[in-house]
Every structure is written in C-alpha cells, then in structure tokens.
Design a protein around this nucleic acid. Structure first.
Lengths: 141, 141
DNA sequence: ATAAATACTACTAAAACAATAGTATTACTA
DNA sequence: TAGTAATACTATTGTTTTAGTAGTATTTAT
C-alpha cells in the first residue's frame, strides 16, 4: 500500500508551486533546490501534471512553471492520480472485467470500501489545505 | 497504492478458512483448488499468518489449517498488515525519524490523515463481515 | 512402513520503479 | 542575431521488489 516516490515528490512539487502561487513563474531548478530533489527527476513529473491541466509552463529564458488553478481548486487526489495512474488498491475495483471471479468473490467488497475511503479522503484535501495547515491529523487513537 | 498479491491472496485464504470455520481442519490443497491459487504460493502465506496467531495448523496426514479465533475477532487490517508489513502509505508516517525534513514538510499531514483512514477502515471490517456480506459498499458518488 | 499433509530453504524470472544522461527546442536579452 | 537559460523530449540503465517455482525435510494417522 505504498505511495510511489513519483507521487510523493510530485505532491511536494505542487506544494512549492502553491506556496509561490502569487509570484508567477517559478524555475524547476529552484524547486529542486528547495525540496532537495533532482531537477532531472522533477522534469519528468511536470509533463503529466501539465497534460492534466494542473500546471502551466513557459519555455525559454525566464520561463518556468505555475499552478494552472488556484490552490483551493487542486485536490491531492488529482495530483496522486495523475502521477500514479489509477489509485485503487486492487485492479478489479476500477476494472471489474479483468476478473471472472468477481461475482462470487467475498473479498471484493472490502477493497471497494477501501477504495472509496481513500478517494474520499484525498478528494477532500486541497493544496490550499496543505499550505495553510488547516486540516489537522486526528492524533487520538 | 496497490495492495500486493500476497495480501489479496492471503485475504482470500482467510475467507476460505472463515467459511469453513465450523468444519475444523482444512487442507491447503482444497483451498488452493477452490480459490484457484497455487498451493505452493499459499504455503508461504500461511507461515506469517500462523506466527501472528491468526491461524493454527496440524501436521501430518489429516492435518490442515483452521482459524485460531472466531471470524468476528479477525480484522482485515490484521491480515493485510501481517502479509504486507507496515501498511502506511509513506514510510515517514510510521517511522518519522527516517526523514529530516519532517518538521517542515507540508505534505506529511495528508499522508498521516490518509494512513489513519486506511487503518480505521480495515480495522472496522472483520472476516465475519466479509462472509456475511454485512457491510455494504456505498455506491453513491 | 507408507502415505499425506505441513514446514522449511533456496532459487529464478519478471515487473515496477528510481534515477540519470543526453539532445532538441524555445524564447528572452543584449 | 548570437548567446544563454530555461523547458521538452527520448532513451537507457541499474536496482529493488514481487511473484512464483522447485525441492527437501519433517510430522503423524493409518
């Protein structure tokens, strides 16, 4: 159930863009330095994020990246889904036709519920929440 | 965010044992046949499940496996955790000392919340729920 | 004794993942 | 219009994880 490095680093990248939202274009180089992630690696993550319409870019000198929408309009689910592909815990939840046992499978239900909870959770948290520390983790047992 | 085959197959194995809870010892061979999973593969999963105290076994002819507790006392979380190890979506949630950026990391919070939701969900569902179809997936958007 | 089951050890193959390298293209600036 | 600094693209490599198989040892009921 581990999130990929892709999704983790991508979320950090997006947080940096959110923090600098008002400043316009930001160089990947600067984000790489701030987050201590290789610029080369980040340069791969940026492509699908742009294709998804979450960020926009400008090429050439004084180019850079910025969020394509306000931080409040971008959910963590969108980011993770973009970088990780389908986020469901098992293949058959998103794509039931791949398994012929689906109609009798007693375990399908629990993965379905789990998928819903994960989706719901990531959908409810935006970049704005992250940079404002609005949402608080429930530390009680 | 995919669950491993180990955890999926292991859960199916446990469901089979739950379905046959009243019948005493069950051969792995029969479970393998019923679930269409290689007996060899299942024979690996059985070891940590036994070590965790979720199942018990008897060797020799007329041996087999059974649940060590009533299906209502075994949660899906226990099963997944046993087979998958730590189930947290990122390493630093379970083990904060591995990352020096933790105090300033804006993304840590979301993974923490996600971890809690996943744990909570899997903790709330028992083998008994699975075989009774008691819990129902919420199909509304 | 024999047969039928679990327990254990080792290995292999395949897939996923992380990360780097190098080149091409774009566009601002002087 | 040449130079420079940025993004865009393509390819490759190395590592780790995961899935799965093979074979042997041990236990126990008959």
């Amino acid at each position: 159930m581990r999130l990929s490095t892709r999704a983790r680093y991508g979320t950090r990248l997006m947080v940096e863009l959110a923090l600098n939202y008002s400043k316009g274009l930001i160089f990947l180089k600067d984000i790489a330095e701030e987050e201590e992630i290789s610029e080369k690696y980040l340069s791969h993550l940026v492509i699908p994020l742009k294709a998804r319409g979450l960020i926009s870019s400008s090429r050439g000198a004084h180019g850079g990246y910025r969020l394509a929408k306000h931080p409040v309009e971008i959910t963590v689910k969108e980011i993770v889904q973009t970088l990780e592909g389908n986020i469901s815990p098992v293949e058959c939840v998103a794509n039931p036709s791949i398994c012929k046992r689906i109609s009798t499978c007693k375990t399908h239900e629990v993965w379905d519920i789990l998928d819903q909870k994960i989706t719901e959770t990531l959908n409810s948290i935006t970049l704005s929440d992250l940079i404002d520390n609005k949402k608080q983790a429930n530390t009680s047992k």
